[in-house]
């Protein structure tokens, strides 16, 4: 780790101001950024911690949506949405290990947009909204490819809002070493139709499997998924699986998610 300046502002406005410096970075729970810095693969000159900002860590449930403050750690989300949005609670409860879940934040995860992160699948599958200090961004517009988002420099995620589906399930097939999803599928069924988001599989990051969405919107059954053949184009090939294998896993995990969502 190289030397850096550390600030912990108490308001969003102060954080935004602090982030105006070139090479300053926002620090959520640090579960990606700090190991990267320790390996000397990232060298921000200033870290702006978001953990001291009042009112950025909360879970609001009620009505048809769940809103989670940007600095809320995974463990709190898992506990507090268990009744209102059990599929999301189950997803969060399997991110990393207890240490990660007690430090890592939803804002940090979504802003990083790791192509194998779990949260983006839930945000995209539910048609969620990312709330920043400046604006509200629809999930479709927010995720723009591997580690790329619509966030501008210095923009801070203050909350993430999820419409709660009638039925939903997240099915994760873990990469054996990292235990990030090799393929993760979030299926969300709304009155208006079914949405399916895929994480872990694509070189472009999280994406919607529209073919499955169409089929499931008319027949919400695992069988209908079994008949589909997702394309291997653009899927990740690495030590842990070829694009063809990941394409198979998208089908298999989607079918299982549908079956579990009921």
């Amino acid at each position: 780790m190289y030397n850096f300046e550390f600030v912990r502002p108490s308001s969003v406005a102060d954080a935004v101001a602090a982030l105006a410096d070139e090479d300053a970075m926002a620090l959520g729970g640090g579960q990606t950024l700090l190991p990267t810095m320790k390996a000397r693969l990232a060298a921000p000159t200033k870290l702006v911690s978001l953990s001291g900002i009042d009112g950025l860590s909360y879970v609001k449930t009620g009505g048809d949506s769940v809103e989670i403050g940007g600095a809320t750690v995974h463990a709190d989300v898992a506990a507090e949405v268990a009744d209102a949005f059990p599929a999301l609670a189950a997803l969060v409860a399997r991110i990393g290990d207890p240490a990660v879940r007690n430090r890592g934040t939803i804002g940090g995860s979504v802003a990083n947009n790791d192509p194998a992160a779990c949260y983006p699948a839930a945000v995209l599958a539910t048609g969620g909204t990312i709330v920043t200090d400046k604006r509200e961004i629809a999930a479709e517009d927010f995720f723009q490819g591997m580690f790329a988002t619509a966030l501008e420099a210095g923009e801070i995620i203050t909350a993430v809002r999820f419409p709660v589906p009638q039925a939903a399930h997240y099915e994760k097939f873990a990469q054996p070493a990292s235990r990030f999803p090799l393929v993760g599928i979030f299926v969300a069924r709304f009155a208006s139709g079914v949405r399916v988001a895929v994480t872990g599989a694509s070189e472009s990051g999280v994406f919607r499997w529209t073919e499955a969405e169409t089929a499931l919107s008319s027949d919400f059954s695992a069988d209908v998924v079994e008949g589909l053949t997702p394309s291997a184009d653009g899927l990740i090939g690495d030590l842990h699986g070829t694009p063809t294998y990941r394409a198979n896993m998208i089908r298999v995990m989607t079918a299982r998610a549908v079956a579990a969502a009921g």
């Binding site: 097939f173 054996p176 090799l182 842990h240 699986g241 070829t242 294998y245 198979n248």
Partner: peptide, 8 residues
């Protein structure tokens, strides 16, 4: 015997 190898 990774999942991908066995599946293949």
């Amino acid at each position: 015997l990774t999942p991908a190898r066995v599946w293949s």
